[in-house]
């Protein structure tokens, strides 16, 4: 009953979300032709809500994927430095003033993706030097990488002009504002791809969540499946980060909350995690627009305000166990 209520509430938020924002829309004229309300609604608000939904799905699915592959609740693209890698890549592209490269794919997206994938390869390479049980050390490696990337990004700031820096600062705070339909459609495809690959390999993932050795002994090509899924998710993270900037904590919180609500094994939680992640980010975004502050509150700040305390709770709850 409570579950149904939660989903109904989320769906309600999704529906009313496009009507909320800095400009009050004239509801009657939205569906009329050529009004200001109509163009705000269809060119800005609806694409933004869809973008937020897909972004939340990609973040939550990636979180679930990382937690399962590394068998640790604290492993997410954000905590392991994959998001920071994407931010640095995108930041460098902004600094260099690179525009569209080819086939309409922006240099910022491409560099974001490369930053994320580079980090994944670096983590896999470095993890060879750890014993398989030392996943805590991998987390520390990820944190060290994040700090290193932040410092490198500071150098990019230092070298940048005032205008570039303003763009960079806004970028690093995270924002879901998109104009037009290009970004939501691109991210929609990518979200579908990430979901498809996680779902297609749900049985392999279930075995990998027991242990890598056990998965191998059941016939899973563990290194290949792990690498393939990590690259798919890095693609999602890279493209997402290059448009919206880093959005923390969604990948950490959502899989946990879904597991609390639905204590089933992994394959039963994949779709629910994707949907919940999407709805959750739409909710956060709606809150940030509804607050009517001087200018819009960056989405990264909203999720971090919710996620920070939750992260601390998780660590303490884990220590208790």
């Amino acid at each position: 009953m409570i579950k149904l209520f939660v989903w109904a509430f989320f769906f309600g938020v999704l529906v009313i979300s496009p009507f909320i924002g800095a400009v009050n829309l004239d509801v009657a004229s939205i569906f009329g032709a050529d009004s200001l309300s109509s163009s705000i609604f269809f060119d800005l608000r609806v694409p933004r809500v869809l973008f937020a939904f897909f972004a939340g799905s990609v973040l939550a699915l990636s979180g679930l994927l990382f937690q399962t592959l590394f068998r640790n609740a604290l492993m997410t693209p954000y905590t392991l430095g994959v998001s920071s890698g994407a931010v640095l890549g995108a930041g460098i592209a902004i600094k260099l003033g690179l525009g569209t490269l080819f086939f309409g794919i922006g240099a910022v997206s491409l560099f974001g993706f490369l930053g994320a994938v580079f980090t994944v390869f670096l983590l896999i390479y470095l993890s060879q030097f750890l014993r398989s049980a030392q996943h805590e050390s991998l987390l520390l490696l990820g944190i060290a990488l994040s700090l290193f990337y932040s410092a490198t990004l500071m150098i990019v700031f230092y070298l940048g002009s005032a205008m570039q820096n303003d763009m960079l600062i806004r970028f690093t705070m995270g924002s879901l504002s998109v104009i037009g339909w290009r970004d939501p459609i691109l991210l929609g495809f990518i979200a579908l791809m990430v979901f498809g690959s996680v779902y297609a390999y749900r049985f392999e993932l279930q075995l990998l969540s027991v242990s890598e050795d056990q998965a191998t002994l059941k016939g899973v090509n563990a290194p290949r499946v792990t690498l393939g899924l990590l690259i798919a998710s890095s693609l999602g993270i890279g493209v997402l980060v290059s448009v919206s900037g880093p959005i923390g904590f969604v990948g950490l919180i959502v899989p946990h909350v879904v597991a609390k609500i639905y204590p089933t094994t992994l394959s039963g939680r994949i779709l629910k995690t994707a949907l919940f992640g999407g709805f959750f980010l739409v909710l956060c975004d709606t809150v940030s627009r509804a607050l009517q502050t001087q200018s819009e509150l960056p989405i990264g700040i909203v999720t971090a305000l919710i996620g920070g305390p939750f992260f601390i709770y998780l660590i303490i709850a884990k220590a208790h166990k």
Partner: peptide, 28 residues
């Protein structure tokens, strides 16, 4: 042997079960 052929030939039972998925049921 390929990985799957090997799995059909040998199974290995470790001393202790280490499991991350807290919800997986016995039949699963």
């Amino acid at each position: 042997l390929s990985l799957k052929e090997k799995a059909k030939t040998i199974s290995y039972i470790p001393a202790k079960l280490e499991i991350y998925d807290n919800f997986i049921r016995v039949e699963e």
